[in-house]
Design a protein around this nucleic acid. Structure first.
Length: 106
DNA sequence: AATATGACTGTCT
DNA sequence: AAGACAGCCATAT
């Protein structure tokens, strides 16, 4: 995949404010104007290059986390004060952050 | 070139 | 509310 795409995705993730989260779909949507791809590509990038970024601030559309890092991410949520629901997932209604500003410059 | 897979999403049952 | 099904796009084999 193009490094541009990776740069964009990682850039957005790094810009997500603490206590806030965004979804793969939103990121994909934000980059859709510059680079094609869908939520799956965002996830693929995260899996490959998401190491050095706060990937736990990127959740699925229902506010749940990838089943692969639930526990680890949960520690970060508790530490950053992310609005968690009783379900253990995130309260998207309150925690969702729109990446539109992050990519607006290009 | 074709098939299978994946840190996804939305709709239907 | 939870599970099944289909659509989506890039990478790997």
């Amino acid at each position: 995949m193009d490094d541009e795409y990776v740069e964009q995705v990682l850039g957005i993730v790094e810009q997500v404010p603490p206590g806030r989260v965004t979804t793969y779909g939103l990121i994909a949507e934000a980059l859709h104007g510059s680079l094609g791809g869908g939520p799956r590509q965002v996830g693929a990038v995260m899996a490959a290059y998401g190491g050095p970024v706060p990937w736990w601030r990127v959740v699925r559309s229902d506010g749940s986390l990838p089943d692969s890092h639930l526990v680890e991410a949960r520690q970060h949520y508790l530490g950053e004060g992310t609005p968690l629901r009783a379900s253990g997932a995130i309260d998207l209604r309150a925690a969702v952050w729109l990446p539109e500003d992050a990519v607006e410059g290009r």
